[in-house]
Design a protein around this nucleic acid. Structure first.
Lengths: 169, 169
DNA sequence: TGCCATCCCATGCGATCCCATATGTGCCCG
DNA sequence: CGGGCACATATGGGATCGCATGGGATGGCA
């Protein structure tokens, strides 16, 4: 597997450390992260949410690509550069698969005792569990509506609930 | 055969494990699932039914397809990703053809002692047997009615036989 | 020299693997 | 044509491994 999927909630211990979910670590290793050695997790405050974005090399390259698409000295690029690179922290995973989150990052996401890791494919996010619960509800509602858009065009009978009666051949 | 068809009902054991019907396993293997190795079953709560949707690589690609059209760092994409990837669990099939269902998934589908596997072609669903029975009754009634509209009332009572399509009793 | 970050070790719990068993099915042989 | 044997599947239980988590030790930096 090579994508970040599903969600996990882990504890922050007294020293500010938190275990990175094992499946995510596996993805990071495939993504060029040499466990215990050089490399690291790129982590920065999410632009529009009280959460942290994080990922490996692939994420770093994506950010580069995003900036590359903008004219060199545009305001937009400067803003994005500052917003993205400016707050990036390179986190290292210790021998036990844990990272320690700097205070500045914890503050942005409102992290105190627990962290919810949310897989988003190319990257993952770290949330305060409660705030994430809200966000998830919104996201679900949105998918609901988006799905109808998709379903309308393609195969109306194949998706979701109507399918149960298709069991018999 | 390369599609999920028919229905099977298996037990959940004390550890929360349940056997994936052998025919479904066969489909999964053709779909890129390397038994015992990397890969897995992608499983998430169905949006409009108390059931779980599940499938192999083909299903995963479908999910990717939904996101493919959206710009990389838009808020919209993040939101969709949360709902799509965030709720997905990657289940691994053990050496005996069983998966173990996490509590979060079991809760959504109301699964306790038994699971009804329902083939839907590209994917399959997992239901609480009782809830599925209800759902099927409604569906059957609907079909009946629809048939009358078409004037195809040729075999009004013989069709469904109330069969015991479950693998075992 | 004191504080902070990293590393190492210990532990409990849950997940995974492996083996055993029963039952049903298909096949082969008589 | 019928009985028995071999195989596959589903299911239960025990053993083992990995992961998350807590605490102590060690080294670097101020």
């Amino acid at each position: 597997m090579d994508r970040f999927v599903s969600t996990f909630t882990n504890k922050i211990d007294a020293k500010g450390r938190v275990s990175v979910p094992a499946p995510f670590r596996a993805v990071l290793e495939r993504d060029g992260y040499a466990s215990g050695a050089a490399g690291g997790i790129y982590c920065y405050p999410a632009l529009e949410a009280p959460a942290l974005d994080a990922g490996g090399e692939r994420l770093a390259k994506k950010i580069d690509g995003l900036l590359a698409g903008l004219p060199d000295y545009s305001d937009e690029r400067d803003e994005l550069s500052v917003a993205l690179y400016g707050d990036v922290q390179v986190l290292t995973i210790d021998g036990d698969g844990r990272i320690s989150l700097p205070e500045s990052l914890r503050a942005h996401a409102g992290l105190n005792s627990q962290v919810t890791f949310v897989g988003l494919g190319d990257k993952f996010q770290m949330w305060n569990p409660e705030q994430f619960a809200e966000r998830r509800e919104r996201a679900r509602a949105k998918v609901h509506q988006t799905r109808k858009l998709f379903g309308a065009g393609s195969r109306p009978s194949e998706d979701e609930d109507g399918g149960s009666e298709g069991a018999r051949g």
